[in-house]
Amino acid sequence: MLNPITICDKDIFQQVKLSCLIPTMIEGIVGRQVIAQIAAEKGIVADTHELQQAADDLRRVNNLHSAGETWIWLQKYHLSLDEFEELAAATVLSAKLAQHLFAEQLEPYFLEHQLDYTRVVMYEIVLDDEDLAMELFYALQEGEIHFHQATHQYIQDPDLRRQGGYRGLVRRNELKPEISAAVFSAQPPQILKPIVTAQGAHLILVEELIPAELTQELRYEILSALFATWLKQQVEQVEVTPQLEPEPILLQSR
Rank of each mutant, 00 (worst) to 15 (best):
R119G: 07
E107M: 08
A98R: 02
A90F: 03
L97Q: 02
F110L: 03
R119F: 00
E83V: 08
W71A: 15
A67K: 11
R119Q: 13
T91A: 11
E85H: 09
H65R: 13
Y123I: 07
A90I: 07
H100D: 10
Y123P: 02
D82F: 07
D82K: 14
W73A: 10
K96W: 08
F102Y: 08
T91Y: 10
E86H: 07
L79Q: 08
M122E: 07
R119A: 08
F84E: 09
F84S: 07
A98H: 04
Q99E: 15
Y109S: 05
I72N: 06
E124A: 10
R119S: 12
T118F: 04
Q105S: 13
E112I: 03
I72F: 14
L97E: 05
H113P: 00
L93W: 02
K76T: 14
Y77T: 13
I72W: 08
E83I: 05
D82Q: 14
A95K: 12
R119Y: 01
Y77H: 15
E124F: 03
L81Y: 12
S80V: 05
T118H: 09
E112H: 07
K96R: 15
P108L: 05
E112S: 08
L111K: 09
F110P: 00
T70F: 10
Q114M: 07
L74P: 00
V120R: 01
E86L: 11
E86Q: 12
M122T: 11
R119W: 00
Q105I: 07
S66A: 10
V120L: 04
L111S: 11
F84I: 10
Y117M: 05
V120Y: 01
E69V: 09
P108M: 03
A103E: 15
Y123N: 05
H78D: 13
